[in-house]
Design a protein around this nucleic acid. Structure first.
Lengths: 226, 226
DNA sequence: CCGCTTTTTCAGGAGACTCTCAGTTCGCAC
DNA sequence: GTGCGAACTGAGAGTCTCCTGAAAAAGCGG
């Protein structure tokens, strides 16, 4: 369980980090927005705690930029005082929850746990997955290429999510079978190929793309841009 | 999100409270009926969880007194054992839902969430709900498509409101059943489909629309514009 | 109690979705 | 180029979900 904490008030940040560590989490600290963005986009965290007031790049922007980059990690925003944070704006930028300073540590902890829990529950890793112009709205079970909505069946959506989630890293057919069809599936493993075929006909062919690529002998990869 | 929990079994109450807190709710505890009534009548809560067996003033009376005092907060009653609670009596005193001990925490949580959701829907619905050219005037229980008034039965209106409320997000059949037919409904879940059929014939077919969409395997969604 | 409206149940059928299968194509090594 | 395994694809069967019409049941007003 690894948490990224982005806050420029060093002593406060240290003490929060210490609290999380006592609770058994690993914590990485960043003290400005740029560093926070770098870390968040190049590593995998269970959750990100993000202050709004940050040097170099503020919390809103970090959050918006991360979402634009396809990072779906749950984000909890911290704001300095009641009312400063416009809820609509926070939601727009893609935050999952927020908390007004000053707050009790236990409250932060509780919120964060709830967040992580929810995100695990949607085992797809959150509600929204974006790579290039492909958007998967997992919560509403919808999928878009740019502005065009693409009708996917349940299986197709699950499979696409599983492939896109690790993009641009490839996923083995075995693990797709396991994740999408379940550990007890005993049918023809050829289903994966069949469904990749269906997906290509829906998300690639009509748009003249070839983002669902075969990695021969391994599995498949989603390559956002050509 | 603030919840009042009134229960005299201290250790049980503490652990339930902790559970709610982890889920992101604030919780206030009261261990007898008088204290519960005081808090509930002088503060604003999202919901109240009320044990029947309480020192000083039992749950029925607390509930009845609160309603008499004009407190409309949703109340979920807890009863010690199956059958002890007379459903009619509980409804008479003004409870919105009830649960028999022992119960799984997740069940309590689910019921409570539904309660809060319904109550929010109701208070929002005091005004009117508009999506595209569809208008639901919940206060007067009327419904319009553009300038044409549509005659809906009580069930139809409730169901339509429940689907439109979250538009364009889909709603599961389960939660529709729960919110519109009540948590204790045990009939044929097919009734949802039947009513969606009725609604389509009234609000879509005559206007050449298809705004009530099926999300296969999930439920339904209201899509205002085509 | 009667007739009308609303709500609910039920069962058949249409269509969507999933998966299998077999034939074909593709990519790579030799 | 040839051979082989891997991957692709079209067809179709089986299953499941959802829709619908009809009728029974429950309310309701007179």
């Amino acid at each position: 369980m690894h948490i990224l904490l982005v806050d420029d008030e060093v002593s406060l940040a240290e003490s929060i980090a210490e609290g999380f560590r006592v609770e058994g989490y690993d914590v990485t600290l960043a003290h400005d927005g740029n560093r926070g963005f770098e870390l968040a986009s190049s590593n995998t965290y269970e959750a990100i705690v993000l202050d709004i007031m940050l040097p170099k790049r503020n919390g809103y922007r970090v959050c918006a930029d991360l979402r634009a980059a396809g990072v779906g990690t749950p984000i909890l925003m911290l704001t300095a005082k009641q009312g400063e944070l416009d809820e609509a704006e926070a939601l727009d930028t893609g935050a999952d929850d927020f908390l007004c300073k000053p707050f009790a540590f236990v409250v932060l902890l509780a919120r964060l746990r709830a967040l992580i829990r929810r995100s695990n529950a949607f085992s797809n890793g959150g509600d929204r997955l974006q790579r290039g112009d492909l958007v998967i709205d997992a919560r509403n079970r919808r999928c878009f290429r740019g502005n065009d909505e693409i009708q996917l069946t349940a299986r197709e959506l699950d499979l696409l999510s599983a492939i896109v989630r690790t993009s641009p890293d490839p996923v083995t057919k075995t693990s797709l079978l396991h994740d999408v069809w379940g550990p007890r599936f005993e049918g023809d493993p050829n289903v994966v190929e069949v469904y990749v075929g269906y997906l290509r006909r829906k998300i690639d062919t009509p748009f003249g793309r070839s983002s669902l690529q075969t990695v021969r002998g391994v599995g498949y990869r989603f390559q956002p841009e050509k």
